[in-house]
Design a protein around this nucleic acid. Sequence first.
DNA 1: TGACAATGACTGACCAGTCAGTCATATTTA
DNA 2: TAAATATGACTGACTGGTCAGTCATTGTCA
Lengths: 230, 230
Amino acid sequence: MPAKRRRAEKAAPVKPSTPALPEATFPKPASSRAARAAERRAAIIEAALDEFIARGYAATRLDDVASRAGVAKGTIYLHFADKETLFQELVRTALVPLIGRLAAPPPPGGSVRAALENFAQTFAREVVSTRRGDILRLIVAEGARFPSVADFYYREVVSRGLAGMRALLELGIKSGEIRNQGLAQFPQIVVAPVIVAVIWQGLFARHAPLDASEMFRVHLDLIFGERRTT
Amino acid sequence: MPAKRRRAEKAAPVKPSTPALPEATFPKPASSRAARAAERRAAIIEAALDEFIARGYAATRLDDVASRAGVAKGTIYLHFADKETLFQELVRTALVPLIGRLAAPPPPGGSVRAALENFAQTFAREVVSTRRGDILRLIVAEGARFPSVADFYYREVVSRGLAGMRALLELGIKSGEIRNQGLAQFPQIVVAPVIVAVIWQGLFARHAPLDASEMFRVHLDLIFGERRTT
DNA sequence: TGACAATGACTGACCAGTCAGTCATATTTA
DNA sequence: TAAATATGACTGACTGGTCAGTCATTGTCA
């Protein structure tokens, strides 16, 4: 028996997320060189993200990334020093929009519960079961092996997000909306069901679908006291 | 620049968990052949677990597993069909003791809170920051790529654990200890901080140590109402 | 036309899986 | 019981496919 292929699916298609960029059809009118270079870089990152999510870091082949991005392998090396750098920059890039949001919305004046409810539903809609959830899973899966990625994620996302959450919780405690004094010390508790929902989606959704939105609601009931009709 | 080594650490030591089995020094008096074979199989699984935890599935070399187990590579193939089978059987083996525990302790008669407190502290002590936590992280990291592993874990651990937790919660609701009716529908909420603690330990412990035990306590206060001195 | 971007064939390290041969142990025979 | 023979667990050098990274060549702008 000849050597078996090295991974379960040799090159299973991997759902394409972006339909190969419409303008890839006639690449001429794309503005300047610099602009086209940026486009290619973006295409590579996009393709690499899909592959890394589907196969994990070690099992991802740059040949596949290249062909998915519609680019030759050498081109990848014009934009990134090596596979590891590509991975790191990709995570950074993927997190930038998320980081923007984190600093943004302090409670506008409404109740803390309303703010958290908004937060939870936004998560249920835009993270669990979406590309953003995939990215989170990717970081959880590979973070331990890429300290720089874990560092970055902690610094730019986790610590900021938790700080914001803590501020919100302290507000709720001060105003009397939240009973439990200790909660401000562990904002992780508030976020935990979100993390679990994301992981569940990745591992067990096929066995037992989880209504994340409803779970978040129950959890908020736990934090703020009895149910109320939203 | 010559080809870079394929992974960050070529063969970084990886802390040995078992001190190379004392009897490996003079292998003679080991009982029967069958017994020695079983020992070797166990040694391979042990070594493979360490390597898979440290490097992930794809980046683990069976050569390393073999030398860590004190065995030739071919020997691995006498016990396991291939790398993937080794991985799957290893996860199964690692989970067996955990599965045993799950069925075991229904509330003896004490309060539901006491049962959950016991559960939480047991977890804080024996899972977060231990080999068991590593295994959980391994499953989270690789599960998506190994449906059979995710299936097994769901069937044998998750669904049973959650069922037990649900029963406990229903007991608490019936007795009045737990206010929130919806909790029984989402036992995941109760377990969520445990999962988060395990992941945190793997990714961020060096940046910001997390007092899992205390976090669990706060969370239980949330579920049962105000604090009480344990 | 000159400079820069892109290509993809190529290299060499790497590693899963194989297999002919060894030897400790078990079994049979004298 | 002791020698002779059979067994099969174990070994590790080897094979062949794989893939990160390179670079001479080709294409394309300004």
